[in-house]
Design a protein around this nucleic acid. Structure first.
Lengths: 316, 316
DNA sequence: TTGTAAGCGTTATCAC
DNA sequence: GTGATAACGCTTACAA
C-alpha cells in the first residue's frame, strides 16, 4: 500500500534517495539509510511488483506448466524444480490450462519449464523464435535454443523387456500410452527393437496411460484364456494398476501366472499385493536439472540437452 | 516484444487509438479497428502484463498456496479451484514456500487461497488488516473479512467412531496428526466426545499425518500383543496405509483382527487389500466453493464461511 | 473519431 | 550524498 513516495515524504528526502537506500546502493550515508529503512519497515513497505517489473523487464519468476494437477506424479518433480530455482533466487509458480500460456508473451515470467501436452510443438517453437526462455521435459525438439531434459525411455523399456526375458518369457504383451505421447513412442520403439533382438513374439495393445485403459487391456488379454505365464510390460504404472484391479477376482496369480513390469515407480506401486516391479528414475533430480537448464538460459548461457536415466526396481 | 507504440507507428495513428481499438471501445471506427487489429496480429502483439497491471491495479490472477507439492491430496482440489475461477475470467497460479508469500503485498495476485501451514495465523491476520483478499481452507479465524471454507472434521470423526461402534468395538486407538494442525485438533476433539458418549475406552497415539508415523503407531500397538479385534481410527489415509504396511507380514488379518477407518479418501485407498474404509468428501467441490468465495471478495461482496460435509465410505 | 498527456510505482541517469 | 527527471508500456480523461 505504501510506496516509496510516502517514505520519501516522511523522511523528507527525494524518492530516488529512498530507492538507493532500500536497494543497498553506496551512494547514500549509512545514517540516512538506517533512517529510511526504519520508516519503510514501519510502513510495511513492499515494492510493487508491476512497477519494478516494468522498469527491470524481468520478474525473477519461472513458470512451470503441467498438463493437470491430478495424479501423484508431479509432486516430487515440482519440489525438485523449486529447490533448483531457489538456489538462484528465482521464484516458481505452477500453471496449467491454455489461458495461462499467455503468461509467456505477457512477460509475467522470465521463462517456462514445460511438461504439458496442451502446448503444441508449434506453439513452443513460435515462442522459441521470439526468444522466450523455454525448457521442455516432454518432447524432442530440433531447436538448439530450447534445452530438453528427457527421460531415457528407451533405456527403461529395454530394461523392462530384459527383465521379462530373464524370467524366461516367450511372448510379451505391450500395453502402450496414447499415440501423441513422446514417451510412449519411445518406449514402444525400444521395446519392439529389444523383443526382436531376442526373437520373441509380442502383442501391442493400445492404452492411454490411464488406469481404466490398463483394466481394459487386461480384459482383452485374459478373455482369451491365454497360456500362462502371461508377461506384460505396461508403459506406465497406472495401467499396471488397472491390470491388478482386473485380476483381483480372477484365478490368475500375479507373480506366478502373470508377470507385470510397469514404468514410473509411482508411490502406490509399493502397496500393491504383490509389489509392482517397475522402471524407476529420480523425479527430484529431473526437476533439479530442469531448473539448472532454465537458470543457464536466463543467464544467457548455453544449455545442453540431458537424459534422465532409469533403473529397474525388481520387486515381487 | 511489440508494443502498442510499434502498432501505432505502423498504422499511422496515436497509441491511444490503438489502445481503444484493441480494448473494444466504441470510440473508434470499425474500419480503423480492423486495420489495427490486423497489424497487432501480424506483430503477434500481446499486452505487457506489468504495464497493464501497473495501470489497472489488478492482475486478475489468484494465488493458491499449498504446503508442498507432494501427495495425491491436492490435485482434485486445485482442479476445482481452477474451474471455479475460470468461470469468472480469473487465472490461477499455484505457489508454495515462504518466499512466494511476498506475492501478496507485492500485488502480483489479486487474492490468495490458503491451504498452507507455512503461513502463520498472525501473518494472515496482518494481511487481512491491510485489506488483501484471503480465503483460508486450513484454519479457523476470527476475522469476518477472511472467509473460511473448512472440512467438517467433527462430523467426519463422529462418523468414523460410529462405524467402529456399530462393528461392536469396545476400545479404539486414535492415531492423530500433528498438534499444530487445525484439522487434527478438530478430529481429536470430536472423536473423544463421541467415544465418551458411548462410554468406550480409547488410546491416543500421536502421529503426524505421514505414512511413516502410521507405521510407527502400528508397531507400538501390536508389539504389545493386544486383544483382537483391534480397532483403529487413523486421522488420515496416509497413516492408515502405514498401518497396512506394518501388518503385511504379521499374523493379523485386516478386516477381521484389525479394523481401520481412515480420513480423506485418497486414491490409493481403493487399491489396498482389503480396500480402506474412510471418511470422504468432495475435494473438487471444496475447490469450487473456495473459488466462489474469492470471487465474491474481489467483487467486494460479503462472503460467508462454509463447511464441506463428509461421508463414510464403507469398504472392506 | 482521433490525438495529447497524465499517471500507475519503480529504477537509473544525470546534474548539482 | 542527494534531488530532478526520464523511462518502462499501458489506460483513460480530456482536448481537438
Amino acid at each position: 500500500m505504501a510506496s516509496i513516495k510516502d517514505i520519501a515524504k516522511i523522511a523528507g528526502v527525494s524518492i530516488s534517495t529512498v530507492s538507493y537506500a532500500l536497494n543497498g546502493s553506496n551512494k547514500v550515508t549509512e545514517e540516512t539509510r538506517q533512517r529510511i529503512k526504519k520508516i519503510a519497515d514501519d510502513l510495511k513497505y513492499v515494492p510493487n511488483m508491476a512497477a519494478r517489473t516494468l522498469k527491470r523487464q524481468r520478474t525473477n519468476i519461472i513458470g512451470v506448466y503441467v498438463t493437470d494437477y491430478r495424479g501423484s506424479f508431479y509432486g516430487e518433480l515440482l519440489d525438485g524444480i523449486k529447490r533448483g530455482l531457489g538456489y538462484y533466487d528465482y521464484d516458481m509458480i505452477v500453471c496449467s490450462g491454455s489461458r495461462s500460456h499467455l503468461f509467456i508473451p505477457e512477460k509475467m515470467i522470465d521463462g517456462a519449464i514445460i511438461l504439458d501436452s496442451t502446448f503444441s510443438t508449434e506453439e513452443i517453437t513460435q515462442f522459441a523464435d521470439e526468444d522466450y526462455n523455454l525448457v521442455v521435459l516432454d518432447r524432442e525438439l530440433d531447436y538448439s535454443s530450447v534445452p530438453q531434459v528427457l527421460l531415457d525411455n528407451k533405456g527403461g523399456a529395454t530394461l523392462a523387456i530384459n527383465q521379462l526375458v530373464e524370467l524366461g518369457s516367450r511372448k510379451v504383451f505391450l500395453i502402450t500410452g496414447p499415440n501423441g505421447s513422446y514417451d510412449n513412442r519411445q518406449r514402444l520403439e525400444a521395446s519392439v527393437k529389444e523383443l526382436e533382438r531376442f526373437n520373441m513374439s509380442y502383442d501391442v495393445i493400445n492404452g492411454n496411460f490411464t488406469e481404466a485403459s490398463g483394466h481394459q487391456a487386461a480384459e482383452f488379454i485374459f478373455s482369451k484364456s491365454p497360456q500362462v505365464p502371461v508377461d506384460i510390460f505396461a508403459f506406465n504404472d497406472e495401467m499396471a494398476i488397472g491390470i491388478y484391479r482386473y485380476l483381483k477376482d480372477k484365478p490368475y496369480v500375479i507373480g506366478r501366472d502373470v508377470r507385470i513390469v510397469g514404468f514410473d515407480n509411482i508411490e502406490i506401486g509399493e502397496f500393491l499385493e504383490p509389489k509392482l516391479t517397475t522402471i524407476s528414475y529420480s523425479k527430484h533430480r529431473w526437476g533439479i536439472i530442469a531448473a539448472e537448464k532454465m537458470i543457464r538460459l536466463v543467464s544467457n548461457e548455453q544449455a545442453e540437452d540431458e537424459l534422465i536415466y532409469t533403473s529397474l526396481v525388481e520387486r515381487e
